[in-house]
Nucleic acid binder design. Structure first.
Lengths: 144, 144
DNA sequence: CGGTATCCACTTAGATACTG
DNA sequence: CAGTATCTAAGTGGATACCG
């Protein structure tokens, strides 16, 4: 993902797009790295990961069951599974207090914090454009 | 997703995170909107959508089959399906040239362009941090 | 060329029951 | 409390064949 292919967009559109970017994409990225990145992104791009990232971003530190209550609709199985993967990827830190009953706390690592920051722009986009998406859907659906 | 819960992070970590953000998340977002946004994000957060967004960002305008060749590993079915959903969401514009054989071109709408810009930060994060993720995985795996 | 339709193997995720 | 284990229903996506 380099510079956008500008030919088809107006200067206004390009400038509007710019307002969602923190910085420009680096110019010379090793093509091999692009593939790695593509694969990694596909891994993060699932429903629960994004929501958990967001929740921990907002709440700071949460116990397993608290997290479950914050993330509406998630099953215990998916919560465990997703947290385990995020821990493995270095995005969250899991702290076990060996008490009875056991207590386990989850919080973002600094790697998770920066990823959350990057996703923040996507959230902003969604807040600002969800009505446009809604409108597009309705138009698409009604024209047979 | 408001401000990060800052208590657990150092100023350095917070400042590093800031460098991935184009702007700060708006302060007072209707909680009802948050739910809508959450749902919508879950819809975009799939493997193929992100890759197609990226490809059209880079290439500008592509025919159906060209797109298929650029997006490695995608089946015709998924390509059709994903493009149709993105078109419905107003992210891509589909242009049909009624020639024989038919020719269909796809390109990003300005809505798609801005979403691509927002995702750009995530790509940058991935490029800059994929080694850290890799290292985290290896450490996690070897400590049984 | 750019699809749609059908079939099927495989994955996924929820519900449930159980445990340190 | 914070999981693991097992079963199963539903969904997903690939392969193949066919059509305008």
């Amino acid at each position: 993902m380099g510079k956008p292919n500008e030919s088809v967009f107006t200067p206004e559109e390009l400038s509007r797009a710019q307002s969602y970017k923190a910085r420009d994409y680096p110019k010379d990225v090793d093509p091999g790295v692009e593939d790695v990145v593509r694969g990694m992104l596909a891994g993060f791009a699932d429903k629960w990961t994004v929501v958990i990232l967001d929740t921990l971003w907002d709440e700071g530190t949460l116990r397993f069951s608290e997290l479950g209550r914050h993330v509406e609709g998630i099953s215990q199985k998916m919560l465990t599974q997703t947290l385990r993967r995020m821990e493995r990827d270095g995005l969250v830190i899991r702290t076990l207090y060996p008490s009875v009953p056991p207590k386990v706390e989850y919080r973002l690592s600094s790697l998770g914090l920066t990823l959350g920051a990057a996703f923040c722009n996507v959230w902003i986009w969604a807040v600002e454009n969800h009505k446009a998406v809604q409108a597009a859907r309705e138009e698409f659906d009604e024209k047979d």
